[in-house]
Each structure stands twice: as C-alpha cells, then as structure tokens.
Design a protein around this nucleic acid. Sequence first.
RNA 1: GGGCGAGUAGCUCAGUUGGUUAGAGCGCCUGCCUUACACGCAGGAUGUCGGGGGUUCGAGUCCCUCCUCGCUCACCA
Length: 912
Amino acid sequence: SAERAIYERWIDAGIFTADEKRSNTNGGDREPFVIVMPPPNVTAVLHMGHGLNNTVQDVIVRWRRMKGDETLWIPGLDHAGIATQNIIEKQLAAEGTSKSALGREAFVERTADFVERTGGEILQQLKAIGASCDWNRTAYTLSPALSLAVREAFVQLHERGLIYRGHRVIHWCPRCLTSLSDEEAQHEDESGQLYHISYPLAGATEGPGLTVATTRPETMLGDVALAVHPDDARYTSLIGKSAILPISNIQIPIIADEYVDPTFGTGVVKITPAHDPNDFEVGLRHKLPMPVVMTPEGAMTNGADAEARVPADLIGVDRFEARRKIVAQLEASRRLVKVEPHQHAVRHCYRCDTVVEPRLSDQWFVRMEPLAKPALEAVRDGSIRILPERWEAVYINWLENIRDWNISRQLWWGHRIPVWYCDRCATHVVSRTDVSACEKCRGPVRQDEDVLDTWFSSWLFPLTTLGWPDRSSAGLVAFYPTDDLITAPEILFFWVSRMIMAGYAFMDAPPFHTVYLHGTVRDTDHVKMSKSLGNGIDPLDVVNTYGADALRYTVIAGMGMGADLILDHRDLEKSFAPGRNFATKLWNIGRFLLANVGAAPVRSVDELTSDELTLPDRWILGRLSASVTECDAALGPPRPSNGRWRREERYAGLRLNEYAESARRFVWNDIADWYLESTKGRIAGGNADGEVARAILTHAFDHSLRLLHPIMPFITETLWQRLPTPVASARAEFLAVAEWPRALPASAAELESMAHFDIVREAVTALRQIRSDYAIAPGKPIDAVIRSPRNASLFQNHAGLIGRLGRARVSVDAAGAGPQAVDAAAHVLISDGSELVVPLGGVVDLSKECGKLRTELEQLEIQLHSLSARLRNEGFTSRAPASVVEAERKKEEEWRRRREHLADKVKALCGD
RNA sequence: GGGCGAGUAGCUCAGUUGGUUAGAGCGCCUGCCUUACACGCAGGAUGUCGGGGGUUCGAGUCCCUCCUCGCUCACCA
C-alpha cells in the first residue's frame, strides 16, 4: 500500500532525471550510465515478459545510481506498424467498415487518435513495478522529431548507395497485404505433401512425360520452364526441347541449370519465376518471362504477363482451395503420379501467422554487407560483448551470412518512404523535405505509397533518443554511447544487431558495450506465456496481491544467466512465494529493529573502538564486508575499462541471481538468524554495550537495505526512511540515491574473530541437534558441559549466549577430555576439537543412541579409509598442489581423532 | 540439413579457471503459536550429477560417443 506514495516522492524529488551537465563527457564529474529501454509496442499492455525485462533493467540502473553514476534510463514506445494497423483494421471490421472505405488520411488520423488516447498505457504500468526511468525523455518512434531522423537516415543511406529499389521475389503476407523482411517471415516445420506431376513432352501426345515434384502445385500455373541439371544423363537429350504445362496447356521449354539438385525428387524442377525466389534467379539467367498468377490476397488470377494461364474455373479461387482443385484435375487426367508425405519448413507471417507467399514485386532494400562489417568486428574485438556468451556465435553467424533488408511495407501506419516519382520524366527523387514538383519538368510528383519497416525506426533508437541527427547535441555528447542493452534473444536480429550497424553507420561508434539477453517467461509445461494462450500472468495482479518487490525478487532470484523463467500461472502464491516470503521477512526484521532500537540516533560505527565490540559484532561486520564483496563480484564491472572488454572481465558480472542470493543470505541467515538473536539481551540493558548493539544492528541492516534496494526498492526505501540515523552523519534523502556499500578488507584479527564466532555457533547448533535428536521437549531444561582444552575462555565468555540460543545451562571444562561420563550422555564434537556433552539422565533410550553412534563410526571409517588411500597415493602427493595435500593431511588427522573419540564413546556407553 | 545450448534432490535451478563430505528456493518428514516474522523457528531426509567410453593422482567440471529435449539459421523444388 505504500508503493505508490514512495514512487511519487521519488518522481517529485527528480532522482530519476538525468542531467547532461553532470556527465563527465560533458563537463561534469560523474560517469554516465545509460540504458535505452526496448520500446514496447504502443498498443501493448504489461505482461510478464515486460515485467522481467524491465525489472532487470531497473535493477542495473538503480545499482549504478547508488554507485554515483549519472544514470539515464530512456523509456520509449514503438508505433509497431503492422501490429497496430491490424488492431485498427479489426476495429473497423467490427464497425462494418474498412480502411479502404475510410481512405488513407482518415485511417492514419484514426490510428494516431487511438494511439494517443489509449496507447502508452504500458508505460504507466511500468511505474507500478518501480521502473526508475527518466520520464521526461519518453520517446516515440513516430514522433515528429524521430520521424525527421528516420527520413534523414534513409536519405543518408541512399546517398551512400546503401539503399536501392529492387525488383525481385520477396515474402508477401496475403492477409496483411504487405511484403516482409526475411526475419519477419519465420520458418515453421510442417508436414505437407510432395506432389509428383507428369508434364507431357511437346509433340508426344502419349507417354510418361517428365515428372516433377512440388509442394505447391497451384504455382504450376505460373511455370515458364522445366529445369534439369546440365550433367544429369537422364535428361540431357531433352534439354532444349519443350513440355506441355498441364491445365494451362501451354508449351514451356526444358532448360539446364546447375541450381537443380539431381538427387532430390525426380531431378526435374518446375520454374515459376514470379512465385519462388530461386526460380526467379533461374528466370533471370535464362531471360524467361515472369507471369504472376495470384492476387495480393492469394487468389488465383491472370496477373502481369500471365495472359490466359489460369483457366476460368480457377480464377478468384484461394491458393489452398486451388491447390486441391488442381490436384483433383491432375488426378482425373492421370497427370498426378504420386503424393508423398513431406516434412518441410514453411514461412509464416510473424504478425498473423498466415503462410507467406513468395511474390515478385518492387521494394526498397538496404544493402547490408557494408553495414555488417563494423558490427561484426565490434563483437570480435570486444568493443561489444553479448551475454550469455553463446549468443555471440549466433550473432556472428547471422552477420556473416547477412542478406539485404527489405524495408518497404505496403501499409499506411508508419513512416512514409521519402521518395517522390515523376511519371512524366520516369524518374524519382529521394528527399529530406517534401517535394511538390518535379525538379526537371516542374510537373506533378507523387510520393511513394509505402511506409518503412517498423524496425527501420527502432534500429536508430539509441541515436535518435539522444538527439541524432544533431551529432553535437548535448544528449549525444553526454550519453552516447549508452551502456547496456537488455532484451530477449528473439529480437537479436530484428533489433539488436541492426542497432549496432546503425551506431557505426551514423555515429562511427557502437551504441552500447554490453548486450544482455535474458530468458523467456514460460509456464510449467515450458510453453511461452501469452495472453492468447491463456497461460499468462498479469504482473499487476502480482503487484496488487504480493507487492512489486515480491515480483521483482522472485524474477531476479529465479533466473540464471540467459535461462528461462518458469512460473505457474495457476498458482500465483506458489510461484511468487520466494519473493513474498523474503519481502515479509525483511519487513519483520525492520519491525523488530524499529521496536527495539527505537528512533533515537545511534552511535556511528566508525567511532566504535574495537574493545567495545563483542564477538557477534565483529562477526556480523565481517559478514557484511564479505557479502558486499560477493554482491560486487556478481554484478561485475559496469563497463569495459578501456573501451574494449578485456578477456578476463568480458563474461564476468550481471549474474543477478547470485547477487540476489548473496544479499538474501546475509539478511536472513546472518542478520536475522544469528546477529539479531544475539542482540536481544543486550539492547534491553540500556547500557553502553546496548548502545554498541544498537549501532551495529542499525548499521548492518542499513547496509542490507542498500544492497537489496535495486531488487526491492519499495520495502527497502520505506524501512530506510524510518531507520535511526547515526549521529553526525549526513545521510541522503532517499535510499535510492544513497551510497552503495563498500567492502572493507578484513584484518587477521577480524578473520580470527569470525572463526571464533563460527565455533560458538557450532556449539549452539550442537545443543539444538541434541534436543531434536532425543526429542527433548522445548521447555525441559538441560545442562551442557563443553570440554575444551584449547578454547576454554572463548566458551567461558560466551556460555551465556550459547545457553540462551541453545536453551541449556552451559558450563565449561577447561581440563579438556577428562574421565568419560559415567551417565549416558550425548556428545557432539566441535570442529576446534572441543566436545559438547549433555547428560541425558535417563530421559533417553540408550540402545537408540548406541545405534546412532555405531552408524556414525561406521561412516567415518569408510570416509577415513578412502582419504588415507588417497594420501598414500604417490600421484596425489607429488602432483597435487601442496596446499591441497596439506589440507587433506590435516583433515585426516582430525578424522582420526574423531574416530578414536567415537570408538571410546561407543565402548563407554554401549559396553563394547 | 548447418550451428548452438540443455539434461544435477519430487519441482525450478546454482555450481566461475578440474581439488574438502555437490548447493539454494519451493515441496517433503519431525518438533515448536520461543515476547519481529507460522509468509515463521529448530532439526532432518532425498542425488548411479542423462547412458557409455577416455584423459588425469583426482572429473558434475576436460575429450569422444550415444540418447532425449530445446533454441537458432537455412533457396532443396
């Protein structure tokens, strides 16, 4: 319930707002740290994928903010050409109208209105999970400024000869009625049919003819030749002759082309230049006609150059229906030789899943090879790293085989292509500004009807959001290049690699130095979560039920580098239990602390003298430093030290789950389980030692909150605001901008203290174990003797603490191993060689304990045996590092002692 | 078809250059409403580290091979 108010205070204080002047690349004294958000589609609503993606970004941004960087996280929206247009078209259909009835101008206006009114909801939703974006800089790919930049990029590339108009077979979606790039036409494996069709030879009315195999019989109406391999002995005699195209009944030549694979199918390929990219190439080589036999919607027709190929009964018939009819006709005329089942990959539209139709048309293309070169080099030379590492190979493989990018879309929603045609002069002009008349003849011109691929605007995002094309803009000077790019692997090619190309093409520098690809959110059957499949989780439900911090912690802690996140949409409580439980724990620690420590200022830890500190104090301070070190190591270096990643740091860091685990362990297992319990008697005392305990507990918890703030910003900020302040210390107004903890190197004395407290903890655990093993009721008092020749004073000093935490009256026997206990007693060895003894005084079944002891002895014998064998092995002692051998020897010694001890005990207790 | 990855406790996953008795969370078992927390506390059980071979004094970790799942690219009609 506190989240919204805290978020508003952060916003009011302007702590998410970046200032160019503070960046050290622009006269300031702070390192800039910048992340550009992968802009969600303007019509999108928040789902778990966004939740994951933006939580990761926010964790990193908040970490750097606390580290003192000038942080900037730029939020944005993508106009999402096809996706948005589809939505409006559906709306229009529901209203009984259509985009063509509306007309282009009205359609665009309506879409813009819709986007204006309801779009961008997702950015509001991101605030609910705590996203610390600089909302003043929210960018939109179709805004006037970015549209100008898009046009500038088009014109520049054209001037450099990298954009051209191409006439070729492209991927066409018959439902969206637009062309698609290679990446947008996605392969899906399908089991289809391979139809073997016999084409009679011209002049021979009878006979078998030539058999070709095809998966798309309907395209045969567009056939202009049959092709065989020039060296295929079966067919060489036929080259140059003709065959009859069934159904259309026209004569087509038999040609030779090396493209044909003699080993596949029958070794004869039908050539359909207008409806197959390979056949198109063959057609070019052999100067064949290229008849189009389908409408844009995918219905059969006699299109350009087709004349009378499609018979009347097939005109207007959909391609798949036509396939059935043609197969039936072929069968009837005995031209269908056979049909085989056939596994193959079919391309589908990435937006509507319709089977893509290859189609001959005129489109604008970007020549990619020159752009790919520096992008390839950037990853190879370490200017850019990709995490997890394995994606670098995928990236390199794609860029090495890059193909030109079809950027024109036959849509209305998007950036209109800045090209104007003069039909009279049969020329065109590419222009930064609108053109109203032909330069040559002063006659009328018309602008290209098409718009640009959505990704043609988003690939410029890191540039345009910072002020490009003005290369000297404050934004670019202060914040370019950015730092991390965080997204899902699905858009590595669509977006990430193209941004890298754009960075080099337009700024001569990479747009970022790190690409972090996180996993996908899936359900327990590992199916990708999606609203339409009904297996989605609404992050706002989670926020409302368990809080944003529970969501964030669960997501971060549960996700290894690059691994998918599995959640159960049917059981939110179970899915988010880790985060909810930890958030509650944290809150309760805070409650205890505030109730016991109170609000009065505490002493500063810096001024405490070492003789004031108790053993637990020194231990928790040591654990704090160790935890900070662990968190820092998991988060890693924020940027390459010298522009390029050195090998040893390249794949280090951003292990957010390890960072989360280290912080959790410190808070829960160190502070809550041990330190806090150890202070319970002290603070109530109200004396000087109580003041020390107050100071240390406050200090340790304060630093826990700092460590956890990037992951759980709301709870940590709320608690931190109420924490007592150390006297004479200037504290930041918000935890969100408080200093990140620094690890202090531990002195030898501190390390010894930590080891000593670990021994004390062992004694406590030993007592609890005995109580549990012998089922001694919690209220029943027990006595314990610690026999310790070496650490008697340590145990003496902490007998009270051990007794309180272990629920026993503890005394210490400094004489060490004296005469064996006459009474039945439980013995537990402590790793310093001491022994903890609890007389069981008739409460316990002796035979049970003997059995236990014997089992323990037996296991120890086995382990000792293999350890000794190892130490007798010369290979080990001579080749293993000395430190390892030494450690093993020490261990063997200890185990021998323990074995003797156990054997003695069994003798004494069990009589054998 | 090419490339890559994964297979570790019932489930979801860690395990950094080969080196003590392989870890965490959830779940499970036992006992506890111990004055911050039962979303908790204490104690506990559970692993032929996918199969097989190899290198090594030593392999979850390196190599080979097989099996099973993913991801990704691809013009075999």
